[in-house]
């Protein structure tokens, strides 16, 4: 299901009320022209799945946090901001998920060369 970034919070909380109370994962795919964020939600009782797709602009993308709805989103959001450089609004993540990493580059974006050495500034 494609939705807009501004709808995300309303949509997720509405779905949570409708029984989609299990967050499977949050991730993103870099399509170079856009970055697509993905929210996998699941209704455990009815055994239904739903994927929320949000198209973001590749420069300084940002998303609102859903941690108040799903505690399980905590590490996923941190992973997302670290791996894709997507800023999560409304969260003051004190530190990154992975150790020994300055977090300035976004490794899972296509612009990040997988075989070139990267000097972390920390």
């Amino acid at each position: 299901m494609k939705i807009d970034k501004n709808e995300l919070l309303a949509k997720v909380s509405e779905m949570k009320r409708n029984g989609f109370d299990y967050l499977v994962a949050i991730t993103a795919v870099d399509y170079i022209k856009t970055v697509q964020a993905l929210y996998f939600l699941r209704n455990l009782e009815d055994n239904k799945d739903e994927v929320l797709e949000i198209e973001l602009l590749p420069d300084n993308p940002s998303l609102p946090t859903i941690i108040h709805l799903f505690k399980g989103a905590n590490w996923y959001e941190r992973e997302l901001s670290e791996m894709f450089g997507i800023k999560i609004e409304g969260r003051n993540a004190k530190r990154l998920l992975l150790e020994k990493w300055d977090g300035k580059a976004a490794p899972l974006r296509k612009s990040f060369a997988w075989n070139a050495p990267y000097e972390s500034s920390d």
Binding site: R95, L97, L98, E99, K100, W101, P107, L108, W114
Partner: peptide, 12 residues
């Protein structure tokens, strides 16, 4: 704290 063993499998 995790990430001491990060190999970047998804990128690989």
């Amino acid at each position: 704290h995790i990430g001491f063993l990060h190999r970047g499998v998804e990128k690989l």
